[in-house]
Design a protein around this nucleic acid. Structure first.
Lengths: 252, 252
DNA sequence: CGTTATCTTGAACTTCGTCAACCCCGGTGG
DNA sequence: CCACCGGGGTTGACGAAGTTCAAGATAACG
Protein backbone atom coordinates (compact mmCIF):
# COMPACT_ATOMS: atom_id res chain seq x y z
CA UNK A 1 0.00 0.00 0.00
CA UNK A 2 1.42 3.28 -1.14
CA UNK A 3 5.04 2.32 -1.68
CA UNK A 4 5.69 5.72 -3.20
CA UNK A 5 5.75 7.30 0.17
CA UNK A 6 6.79 10.77 1.06
CA UNK A 7 10.51 11.13 1.51
CA UNK A 8 11.11 14.77 2.25
CA UNK A 9 14.66 14.43 3.36
CA UNK A 10 16.94 12.08 5.21
CA UNK A 11 19.13 12.40 8.25
CA UNK A 12 22.70 13.04 7.11
CA UNK A 13 24.37 12.21 10.39
CA UNK A 14 23.26 8.63 10.92
CA UNK A 15 22.35 5.59 8.94
CA UNK A 16 19.27 6.31 6.94
CA UNK A 17 16.04 4.48 7.66
CA UNK A 18 13.27 5.31 5.31
CA UNK A 19 10.93 2.51 6.28
CA UNK A 20 9.57 1.38 9.61
CA UNK A 21 10.35 -2.17 8.52
CA UNK A 22 14.07 -1.45 8.28
CA UNK A 23 14.28 0.83 11.24
CA UNK A 24 16.33 -0.64 14.03
CA UNK A 25 14.17 1.32 16.47
CA UNK A 26 10.93 -0.28 15.45
CA UNK A 27 10.85 -2.62 18.40
CA UNK A 28 10.97 0.38 20.66
CA UNK A 29 9.23 3.34 19.13
CA UNK A 30 5.86 1.71 18.65
CA UNK A 31 6.54 -1.64 20.29
CA UNK A 32 4.67 -3.30 17.58
CA UNK A 33 3.15 -6.66 17.74
CA UNK A 34 2.02 -5.89 14.25
CA UNK A 35 2.11 -7.98 11.14
CA UNK A 36 4.51 -6.83 8.48
CA UNK A 37 1.64 -5.75 6.31
CA UNK A 38 0.37 -3.63 9.18
CA UNK A 39 3.77 -2.07 9.61
CA UNK A 40 3.65 -1.13 5.95
CA UNK A 41 0.35 0.59 6.55
CA UNK A 42 1.83 2.50 9.44
CA UNK A 43 4.90 3.23 7.40
CA UNK A 44 2.81 4.77 4.68
CA UNK A 45 1.47 7.52 6.91
CA UNK A 46 4.76 8.38 8.60
CA UNK A 47 6.36 11.62 7.48
CA UNK A 48 10.10 11.96 7.65
CA UNK A 49 11.16 15.57 7.53
CA UNK A 50 14.58 17.10 7.47
CA UNK A 51 16.46 17.05 10.77
CA UNK A 52 15.91 19.71 13.38
CA UNK A 53 18.93 21.75 14.36
CA UNK A 54 19.84 22.37 17.96
CA UNK A 55 17.41 24.92 19.33
CA UNK A 56 14.71 24.31 16.72
CA UNK A 57 11.21 23.90 18.06
CA UNK A 58 9.35 20.74 17.19
CA UNK A 59 6.19 22.42 18.46
CA UNK A 60 5.29 25.17 20.88
CA UNK A 61 2.75 25.41 23.62
CA UNK A 62 -0.56 26.33 22.05
CA UNK A 63 0.23 24.94 18.61
CA UNK A 64 -2.56 22.88 17.08
CA UNK A 65 -1.98 19.20 17.63
CA UNK A 66 -1.33 17.47 14.33
CA UNK A 67 1.04 14.60 14.96
CA UNK A 68 3.07 12.65 17.44
CA UNK A 69 6.77 12.29 16.82
CA UNK A 70 9.01 9.25 17.09
CA UNK A 71 12.60 10.26 17.59
CA UNK A 72 15.10 8.61 15.27
CA UNK A 73 18.26 10.32 16.44
CA UNK A 74 19.17 13.23 18.65
CA UNK A 75 17.26 14.41 21.70
CA UNK A 76 14.20 16.49 22.49
CA UNK A 77 13.39 18.47 25.60
CA UNK A 78 9.80 19.28 26.51
CA UNK A 79 8.74 21.97 28.92
CA UNK A 80 5.71 23.83 30.10
CA UNK A 81 5.57 27.41 31.23
CA UNK A 82 3.09 28.48 33.84
CA UNK A 83 1.31 31.80 33.76
CA UNK A 84 3.82 33.37 36.13
CA UNK A 85 6.56 32.81 33.59
CA UNK A 86 8.29 29.92 35.31
CA UNK A 87 9.48 27.25 32.93
CA UNK A 88 9.46 23.64 33.97
CA UNK A 89 11.23 20.92 32.02
CA UNK A 90 8.82 18.01 31.82
CA UNK A 91 10.91 15.46 29.98
CA UNK A 92 13.83 14.42 27.85
CA UNK A 93 13.19 12.16 24.88
CA UNK A 94 15.80 9.99 23.23
CA UNK A 95 15.83 7.87 20.05
CA UNK A 96 13.02 5.34 19.93
CA UNK A 97 10.81 7.43 22.18
CA UNK A 98 7.67 9.33 21.28
CA UNK A 99 6.85 12.98 22.03
CA UNK A 100 3.66 14.89 21.66
CA UNK A 101 1.31 12.82 23.78
CA UNK A 102 0.19 15.96 25.57
CA UNK A 103 -1.73 16.85 22.42
CA UNK A 104 -4.82 14.65 22.28
CA UNK A 105 -6.31 16.07 25.49
CA UNK A 106 -7.16 19.52 24.13
CA UNK A 107 -6.17 19.09 20.51
CA UNK A 108 -3.37 21.55 21.07
CA UNK A 109 0.07 21.08 22.54
CA UNK A 110 0.28 22.03 26.20
CA UNK A 111 4.05 21.74 26.32
CA UNK A 112 6.73 22.99 23.99
CA UNK A 113 9.35 20.73 22.47
CA UNK A 114 12.83 21.75 21.38
CA UNK A 115 15.80 19.93 19.91
CA UNK A 116 18.79 19.69 22.26
CA UNK A 117 21.01 18.67 19.35
CA UNK A 118 20.58 17.80 15.71
CA UNK A 119 17.54 15.57 15.78
CA UNK A 120 15.51 13.72 13.22
CA UNK A 121 11.99 12.55 13.90
CA UNK A 122 9.23 10.60 12.24
CA UNK A 123 6.03 12.61 12.33
CA UNK A 124 2.94 10.44 12.61
CA UNK A 125 -0.19 12.42 11.75
CA UNK A 126 -2.58 11.69 14.57
CA UNK A 127 -5.86 11.69 12.71
CA UNK A 128 -4.49 9.16 10.25
CA UNK A 129 -3.04 7.12 13.10
CA UNK A 130 -6.43 7.11 14.80
CA UNK A 131 -8.16 6.04 11.62
CA UNK A 132 -5.61 3.32 11.01
CA UNK A 133 -5.82 2.04 14.56
CA UNK A 134 -9.53 1.58 14.13
CA UNK A 135 -8.75 -0.92 11.38
CA UNK A 136 -5.74 -2.54 13.01
CA UNK A 137 -6.61 -3.70 16.53
CA UNK A 138 -2.97 -4.31 17.48
CA UNK A 139 -2.18 -0.73 16.61
CA UNK A 140 -4.97 0.63 18.78
CA UNK A 141 -3.59 -1.39 21.64
CA UNK A 142 -0.10 -0.06 20.99
CA UNK A 143 -1.32 3.47 20.93
CA UNK A 144 -3.09 3.08 24.25
CA UNK A 145 -0.03 1.39 25.69
CA UNK A 146 2.11 4.26 24.54
CA UNK A 147 -0.02 6.76 26.42
CA UNK A 148 -0.34 4.57 29.47
CA UNK A 149 3.41 4.09 29.54
CA UNK A 150 3.88 7.84 29.50
CA UNK A 151 1.54 8.09 32.48
CA UNK A 152 3.53 5.50 34.37
CA UNK A 153 6.86 7.09 33.61
CA UNK A 154 5.52 10.47 34.67
CA UNK A 155 4.34 8.97 37.92
CA UNK A 156 7.70 7.34 38.46
CA UNK A 157 9.06 10.85 38.25
CA UNK A 158 6.91 11.73 41.26
CA UNK A 159 9.05 9.45 43.36
CA UNK A 160 12.08 11.47 42.44
CA UNK A 161 10.65 14.93 42.84
CA UNK A 162 9.04 14.16 46.14
CA UNK A 163 11.40 13.96 49.05
CA UNK A 164 14.51 12.30 47.68
CA UNK A 165 17.99 13.72 48.08
CA UNK A 166 19.67 15.73 45.37
CA UNK A 167 22.16 12.90 44.97
CA UNK A 168 19.43 10.31 44.43
CA UNK A 169 17.80 12.47 41.79
CA UNK A 170 20.94 13.01 39.79
CA UNK A 171 21.88 9.34 40.09
CA UNK A 172 18.43 8.31 38.86
CA UNK A 173 18.62 10.57 35.85
CA UNK A 174 22.06 9.28 34.92
CA UNK A 175 20.88 5.69 35.20
CA UNK A 176 17.75 6.45 33.24
CA UNK A 177 19.71 7.96 30.37
CA UNK A 178 22.22 5.13 30.56
CA UNK A 179 19.53 2.44 30.35
CA UNK A 180 17.80 4.19 27.49
CA UNK A 181 20.99 4.45 25.46
CA UNK A 182 21.83 0.84 26.21
CA UNK A 183 18.68 -0.32 24.44
CA UNK A 184 20.29 0.83 21.20
CA UNK A 185 23.47 -1.14 21.59
CA UNK A 186 25.18 1.92 22.91
CA UNK A 187 27.37 1.80 25.97
CA UNK A 188 25.60 1.99 29.30
CA UNK A 189 28.82 3.19 30.94
CA UNK A 190 29.97 5.90 28.57
CA UNK A 191 27.74 8.43 26.94
CA UNK A 192 27.25 12.11 26.34
CA UNK A 193 24.35 13.82 28.05
CA UNK A 194 22.21 15.79 25.63
CA UNK A 195 21.09 18.36 28.20
CA UNK A 196 22.73 21.12 30.18
CA UNK A 197 23.15 21.18 33.96
CA UNK A 198 20.48 23.80 34.08
CA UNK A 199 18.01 21.58 32.21
CA UNK A 200 18.82 18.66 34.48
CA UNK A 201 18.36 20.83 37.53
CA UNK A 202 15.05 22.16 36.34
CA UNK A 203 13.80 18.69 35.49
CA UNK A 204 14.92 17.31 38.85
CA UNK A 205 13.58 20.17 40.91
CA UNK A 206 17.01 21.41 41.99
CA UNK A 207 19.29 24.33 41.26
CA UNK A 208 22.08 23.97 38.76
CA UNK A 209 24.60 24.63 41.51
CA UNK A 210 23.35 21.67 43.46
CA UNK A 211 23.51 19.43 40.41
CA UNK A 212 27.02 20.59 39.75
CA UNK A 213 28.01 19.86 43.33
CA UNK A 214 26.57 16.37 43.12
CA UNK A 215 28.60 15.72 39.99
CA UNK A 216 31.73 16.91 41.75
CA UNK A 217 30.99 14.70 44.71
CA UNK A 218 30.31 11.63 42.56
CA UNK A 219 33.55 12.28 40.76
CA UNK A 220 35.52 12.65 43.98
CA UNK A 221 34.17 9.30 45.12
CA UNK A 222 35.07 7.67 41.80
CA UNK A 223 31.52 6.65 41.07
CA UNK A 224 31.25 8.56 37.85
CA UNK A 225 33.75 10.55 35.88
CA UNK A 226 32.14 13.59 34.33
CA UNK A 227 33.66 16.10 32.01
CA UNK A 228 30.85 18.52 31.34
CA UNK A 229 28.40 16.44 29.35
CA UNK A 230 30.70 13.48 28.79
CA UNK A 231 29.90 10.85 31.36
CA UNK A 232 31.63 7.63 32.35
CA UNK A 233 29.91 5.56 35.00
CA UNK A 234 32.70 3.71 36.74
CA UNK A 235 30.76 2.23 39.64
CA UNK A 236 27.36 1.28 38.32
CA UNK A 237 26.30 -0.54 41.47
CA UNK A 238 27.33 2.26 43.76
CA UNK A 239 25.41 4.69 41.59
CA UNK A 240 22.38 2.47 41.72
CA UNK A 241 22.61 2.29 45.49
CA UNK A 242 22.44 6.06 45.69
CA UNK A 243 19.02 6.09 44.10
CA UNK A 244 17.49 4.35 47.10
CA UNK A 245 16.70 7.47 49.03
CA UNK A 246 18.51 6.56 52.21
CA UNK A 247 21.62 5.43 50.39
CA UNK A 248 22.20 2.47 52.70
CA UNK A 249 25.59 1.38 53.95
CA UNK A 250 26.03 -1.55 51.53
CA UNK A 251 27.69 0.49 48.84
CA UNK A 252 29.75 3.09 50.59
CA UNK B 1 -28.89 -3.10 22.89
CA UNK B 2 -29.02 -5.04 26.11
CA UNK B 3 -31.41 -2.96 28.12
CA UNK B 4 -31.47 -5.62 30.78
CA UNK B 5 -28.13 -4.58 32.04
CA UNK B 6 -26.31 -5.77 35.09
CA UNK B 7 -27.36 -4.00 38.22
CA UNK B 8 -25.40 -5.63 40.97
CA UNK B 9 -26.13 -3.10 43.62
CA UNK B 10 -26.72 0.60 44.06
CA UNK B 11 -25.07 3.25 46.14
CA UNK B 12 -27.16 3.75 49.28
CA UNK B 13 -25.61 7.04 50.25
CA UNK B 14 -26.39 9.16 47.21
CA UNK B 15 -28.93 9.48 44.48
CA UNK B 16 -28.88 6.40 42.37
CA UNK B 17 -27.76 6.57 38.74
CA UNK B 18 -28.07 3.33 36.94
CA UNK B 19 -27.58 4.64 33.42
CA UNK B 20 -24.88 6.76 31.87
CA UNK B 21 -27.66 8.73 30.21
CA UNK B 22 -29.10 9.84 33.53
CA UNK B 23 -25.81 10.31 35.31
CA UNK B 24 -25.15 13.90 36.16
CA UNK B 25 -21.44 13.13 35.87
CA UNK B 26 -21.59 12.04 32.26
CA UNK B 27 -20.28 15.33 30.96
CA UNK B 28 -17.19 14.84 33.05
CA UNK B 29 -16.37 11.17 33.41
CA UNK B 30 -16.07 10.41 29.74
CA UNK B 31 -16.60 13.88 28.30
CA UNK B 32 -18.69 12.41 25.63
CA UNK B 33 -19.44 13.97 22.36
CA UNK B 34 -21.33 10.79 21.73
CA UNK B 35 -24.76 10.27 20.30
CA UNK B 36 -27.35 9.00 22.72
CA UNK B 37 -27.35 5.65 21.02
CA UNK B 38 -23.60 5.47 21.55
CA UNK B 39 -23.99 6.29 25.20
CA UNK B 40 -26.39 3.40 25.45
CA UNK B 41 -23.75 1.14 23.98
CA UNK B 42 -21.23 2.36 26.51
CA UNK B 43 -23.82 2.07 29.23
CA UNK B 44 -24.38 -1.54 28.39
CA UNK B 45 -20.80 -2.53 29.20
CA UNK B 46 -20.48 -0.53 32.40
CA UNK B 47 -20.63 -2.58 35.59
CA UNK B 48 -21.91 -0.96 38.73
CA UNK B 49 -20.88 -2.89 41.81
CA UNK B 50 -21.65 -2.32 45.42
CA UNK B 51 -19.85 0.60 47.07
CA UNK B 52 -16.38 0.25 48.47
CA UNK B 53 -16.00 0.91 52.15
CA UNK B 54 -13.26 3.15 53.49
CA UNK B 55 -10.01 1.24 53.27
CA UNK B 56 -11.17 -1.22 50.61
CA UNK B 57 -8.81 -1.72 47.70
CA UNK B 58 -10.12 -1.10 44.22
CA UNK B 59 -7.03 -2.85 42.86
CA UNK B 60 -3.53 -3.57 44.02
CA UNK B 61 -0.18 -3.19 42.38
CA UNK B 62 0.40 -6.27 40.24
CA UNK B 63 -3.26 -7.12 39.78
CA UNK B 64 -4.21 -8.01 36.22
CA UNK B 65 -5.69 -5.05 34.42
CA UNK B 66 -9.34 -5.66 33.65
CA UNK B 67 -11.12 -2.34 33.76
CA UNK B 68 -10.91 1.37 34.31
CA UNK B 69 -13.13 2.92 36.94
CA UNK B 70 -15.22 6.08 36.82
CA UNK B 71 -15.90 7.38 40.29
CA UNK B 72 -19.52 8.16 41.05
CA UNK B 73 -19.17 9.23 44.66
CA UNK B 74 -16.51 9.14 47.33
CA UNK B 75 -12.77 9.38 46.78
CA UNK B 76 -9.92 7.12 45.73
CA UNK B 77 -6.24 7.38 46.53
CA UNK B 78 -3.65 5.75 44.28
CA UNK B 79 -0.10 5.02 45.27
CA UNK B 80 2.96 3.13 44.12
CA UNK B 81 5.52 1.46 46.29
CA UNK B 82 9.13 1.26 45.16
CA UNK B 83 11.31 -1.75 45.79
CA UNK B 84 12.85 -0.17 48.86
CA UNK B 85 9.45 -0.11 50.53
CA UNK B 86 8.75 3.59 50.19
CA UNK B 87 5.17 4.39 49.35
CA UNK B 88 4.34 7.36 47.18
CA UNK B 89 0.84 8.72 46.77
CA UNK B 90 0.38 9.37 43.07
CA UNK B 91 -3.10 10.83 43.01
CA UNK B 92 -6.48 11.55 44.50
CA UNK B 93 -9.55 10.89 42.40
CA UNK B 94 -12.93 12.50 42.98
CA UNK B 95 -16.40 11.93 41.50
CA UNK B 96 -16.43 12.16 37.70
CA UNK B 97 -12.78 11.18 37.42
CA UNK B 98 -11.32 7.96 36.09
CA UNK B 99 -8.76 5.72 37.77
CA UNK B 100 -6.83 2.77 36.43
CA UNK B 101 -5.11 4.35 33.45
CA UNK B 102 -1.81 2.90 34.63
CA UNK B 103 -3.08 -0.49 33.48
CA UNK B 104 -2.87 -0.57 29.67
CA UNK B 105 0.91 -0.19 29.60
CA UNK B 106 1.76 -3.63 30.98
CA UNK B 107 -1.70 -5.11 31.26
CA UNK B 108 -1.32 -5.07 35.01
CA UNK B 109 -1.84 -2.30 37.51
CA UNK B 110 1.37 -0.56 38.49
CA UNK B 111 -0.26 1.41 41.29
CA UNK B 112 -2.67 0.42 44.01
CA UNK B 113 -5.99 2.15 44.56
CA UNK B 114 -7.85 2.41 47.83
CA UNK B 115 -11.09 4.05 48.94
CA UNK B 116 -10.62 7.01 51.29
CA UNK B 117 -14.29 6.92 52.19
CA UNK B 118 -17.39 5.04 51.10
CA UNK B 119 -17.04 5.13 47.33
CA UNK B 120 -19.03 3.81 44.41
CA UNK B 121 -17.53 3.36 40.98
CA UNK B 122 -18.52 2.33 37.50
CA UNK B 123 -16.21 -0.39 36.25
CA UNK B 124 -15.64 -0.23 32.51
CA UNK B 125 -14.11 -3.48 31.24
CA UNK B 126 -11.22 -2.37 29.11
CA UNK B 127 -11.29 -5.02 26.41
CA UNK B 128 -14.93 -4.29 25.75
CA UNK B 129 -14.23 -0.56 25.80
CA UNK B 130 -11.46 -1.06 23.27
CA UNK B 131 -13.71 -3.12 21.04
CA UNK B 132 -16.49 -0.59 21.31
CA UNK B 133 -14.20 2.32 20.58
CA UNK B 134 -13.18 0.66 17.36
CA UNK B 135 -16.80 0.93 16.25
CA UNK B 136 -17.53 4.34 17.70
CA UNK B 137 -14.92 6.86 16.54
CA UNK B 138 -15.99 9.48 19.06
CA UNK B 139 -15.39 7.03 21.84
CA UNK B 140 -11.89 6.22 20.64
CA UNK B 141 -11.16 9.91 20.67
CA UNK B 142 -12.53 10.25 24.18
CA UNK B 143 -10.45 7.38 25.41
CA UNK B 144 -7.28 8.87 24.00
CA UNK B 145 -8.22 12.22 25.45
CA UNK B 146 -8.72 10.65 28.82
CA UNK B 147 -5.21 9.23 28.81
CA UNK B 148 -3.69 12.38 27.41
CA UNK B 149 -5.43 14.42 30.07
CA UNK B 150 -3.96 12.20 32.74
CA UNK B 151 -0.52 12.81 31.25
CA UNK B 152 -1.05 16.55 31.34
CA UNK B 153 -2.32 16.57 34.89
CA UNK B 154 0.63 14.43 35.99
CA UNK B 155 2.98 16.86 34.35
CA UNK B 156 1.26 19.76 36.02
CA UNK B 157 2.11 17.98 39.24
CA UNK B 158 5.79 18.29 38.29
CA UNK B 159 5.50 22.03 38.67
CA UNK B 160 4.44 21.55 42.24
CA UNK B 161 6.90 18.92 43.29
CA UNK B 162 9.84 20.69 41.77
CA UNK B 163 11.04 23.69 43.67
CA UNK B 164 7.93 25.31 45.00
CA UNK B 165 7.45 26.24 48.62
CA UNK B 166 5.48 24.09 51.01
CA UNK B 167 2.87 26.81 51.14
CA UNK B 168 2.45 26.90 47.38
CA UNK B 169 2.00 23.14 47.27
CA UNK B 170 -0.67 23.02 49.94
CA UNK B 171 -2.45 26.00 48.40
CA UNK B 172 -2.43 24.32 44.99
CA UNK B 173 -3.88 21.12 46.35
CA UNK B 174 -6.65 22.98 48.15
CA UNK B 175 -7.51 24.92 45.03
CA UNK B 176 -7.43 21.78 42.94
CA UNK B 177 -9.84 19.96 45.22
CA UNK B 178 -12.00 23.07 45.43
CA UNK B 179 -12.22 23.40 41.66
CA UNK B 180 -12.97 19.74 41.20
CA UNK B 181 -15.82 19.82 43.72
CA UNK B 182 -17.17 22.97 42.16
CA UNK B 183 -17.77 21.18 38.89
CA UNK B 184 -20.50 19.24 40.64
CA UNK B 185 -22.39 22.24 41.89
CA UNK B 186 -20.72 21.86 45.24
CA UNK B 187 -19.27 24.81 47.07
CA UNK B 188 -15.81 25.88 46.02
CA UNK B 189 -15.34 27.61 49.38
CA UNK B 190 -16.50 24.97 51.82
CA UNK B 191 -15.72 21.29 51.56
CA UNK B 192 -14.35 18.33 53.44
CA UNK B 193 -11.03 16.94 52.36
CA UNK B 194 -11.15 13.21 51.78
CA UNK B 195 -7.52 12.58 52.66
CA UNK B 196 -5.40 12.78 55.80
CA UNK B 197 -2.58 15.24 56.40
CA UNK B 198 -0.18 12.40 55.93
CA UNK B 199 -1.61 11.53 52.50
CA UNK B 200 -1.47 15.16 51.47
CA UNK B 201 2.10 15.42 52.64
CA UNK B 202 3.17 12.31 50.81
CA UNK B 203 1.46 13.46 47.62
CA UNK B 204 3.03 16.90 47.86
CA UNK B 205 6.50 15.69 48.73
CA UNK B 206 6.42 17.15 52.23
CA UNK B 207 6.16 15.88 55.78
CA UNK B 208 2.86 15.89 57.60
CA UNK B 209 4.29 18.31 60.16
CA UNK B 210 5.05 20.82 57.44
CA UNK B 211 1.56 20.47 55.97
CA UNK B 212 0.09 20.96 59.39
CA UNK B 213 2.19 24.07 59.94
CA UNK B 214 1.08 25.51 56.62
CA UNK B 215 -2.55 24.98 57.60
CA UNK B 216 -1.94 26.74 60.88
CA UNK B 217 -0.26 29.61 59.12
CA UNK B 218 -3.05 29.96 56.55
CA UNK B 219 -5.54 29.96 59.37
CA UNK B 220 -3.66 32.59 61.33
CA UNK B 221 -3.67 34.81 58.25
CA UNK B 222 -7.40 34.27 57.75
CA UNK B 223 -6.94 32.82 54.29
CA UNK B 224 -8.52 29.50 55.07
CA UNK B 225 -10.24 28.18 58.13
CA UNK B 226 -9.44 24.55 58.69
CA UNK B 227 -10.81 22.23 61.29
CA UNK B 228 -9.11 18.94 60.59
CA UNK B 229 -10.55 17.94 57.24
CA UNK B 230 -13.27 20.58 57.14
CA UNK B 231 -12.06 23.46 55.03
CA UNK B 232 -13.44 26.92 54.44
CA UNK B 233 -11.54 29.07 51.97
CA UNK B 234 -12.16 32.62 53.11
CA UNK B 235 -9.71 34.45 50.85
CA UNK B 236 -9.74 32.66 47.53
CA UNK B 237 -7.62 35.26 45.76
CA UNK B 238 -5.00 35.33 48.46
CA UNK B 239 -4.81 31.55 48.35
CA UNK B 240 -4.41 31.65 44.59
CA UNK B 241 -1.61 34.18 44.92
CA UNK B 242 0.28 31.78 47.15
CA UNK B 243 0.49 29.21 44.40
CA UNK B 244 2.70 31.48 42.33
CA UNK B 245 5.99 30.23 43.71
CA UNK B 246 7.34 33.61 44.76
CA UNK B 247 4.12 34.66 46.42
CA UNK B 248 4.46 38.23 45.23
CA UNK B 249 3.66 41.26 47.34
CA UNK B 250 0.20 41.89 45.89
CA UNK B 251 -1.57 39.65 48.34
CA UNK B 252 0.28 39.92 51.58
C1' DC C 1 41.45 36.07 20.25
C1' DG C 2 38.18 38.16 22.81
C1' DT C 3 33.34 37.41 24.16
C1' DT C 4 29.82 34.71 25.97
C1' DA C 5 27.58 30.68 27.77
C1' DT C 6 28.15 26.95 30.78
C1' DC C 7 29.97 25.03 34.65
C1' DT C 8 32.35 24.91 39.25
C1' DT C 9 33.28 26.33 43.90
C1' DG C 10 32.72 28.88 48.25
C1' DA C 11 30.19 31.09 52.19
C1' DA C 12 26.01 32.68 54.34
C1' DC C 13 21.31 31.96 54.79
C1' DT C 14 16.56 29.70 54.57
C1' DT C 15 13.46 26.25 54.50
C1' DC C 16 11.97 22.22 55.64
C1' DG C 17 12.80 17.70 57.96
C1' DT C 18 13.56 15.32 62.33
C1' DC C 19 12.52 14.26 66.90
C1' DA C 20 9.68 14.84 70.64
C1' DA C 21 5.95 16.33 73.37
C1' DC C 22 1.33 17.34 73.51
C1' DC C 23 -3.63 17.82 72.17
C1' DC C 24 -8.08 16.55 70.46
C1' DC C 25 -11.68 13.45 69.55
C1' DG C 26 -14.05 9.16 68.90
C1' DG C 27 -14.49 4.56 70.46
C1' DT C 28 -14.40 1.00 74.09
C1' DG C 29 -15.03 -1.01 78.25
C1' DG C 30 -15.23 -0.91 83.24
C1' DC D 1 -20.75 8.09 82.97
C1' DC D 2 -16.16 8.45 82.96
C1' DA D 3 -11.40 6.68 82.31
C1' DC D 4 -8.57 4.94 79.09
C1' DC D 5 -6.69 4.27 74.66
C1' DG D 6 -5.14 5.14 69.99
C1' DG D 7 -5.05 7.47 65.67
C1' DG D 8 -4.68 11.70 63.63
C1' DG D 9 -3.35 16.37 64.17
C1' DT D 10 -0.66 20.37 66.17
C1' DT D 11 3.31 22.75 67.98
C1' DG D 12 8.19 23.65 69.30
C1' DA D 13 13.37 23.32 69.14
C1' DC D 14 17.10 22.01 66.53
C1' DG D 15 19.86 20.56 62.62
C1' DA D 16 20.74 19.20 57.91
C1' DA D 17 20.16 19.79 53.12
C1' DG D 18 19.73 22.70 49.53
C1' DT D 19 19.21 27.59 47.88
C1' DT D 20 21.05 32.08 47.10
C1' DC D 21 24.49 35.20 45.99
C1' DA D 22 28.88 35.92 44.31
C1' DA D 23 33.19 35.00 42.17
C1' DG D 24 36.04 32.41 39.29
C1' DA D 25 37.19 28.67 35.83
C1' DT D 26 36.61 26.37 31.49
C1' DA D 27 34.94 25.48 27.19
C1' DA D 28 32.40 27.04 23.04
C1' DC D 29 31.83 30.47 19.43
C1' DG D 30 32.01 34.03 16.36
Amino acid sequence: MNQHQQRICTAPHSKVYTHCNDCRLNSICLPLSLEFSDIDKLDSIVQRGKPLQKGDNLYRSGDPFKAIYAIRSGAIKTWSSSRDGEEKVTGFYLPGEVVGLDGPAENIHINSAIALQTTSVCAIPFDRLEALSRQVPGLQRNLLQLLSREINSDQKQFNLLGRTSAEARVASLLLSVSARYERHQLSAQEFTLPMSRSDMANFLGLTLETVSRVFSSLQKRNIVSANRKDIVITEMLALRALTHKNGDETCR
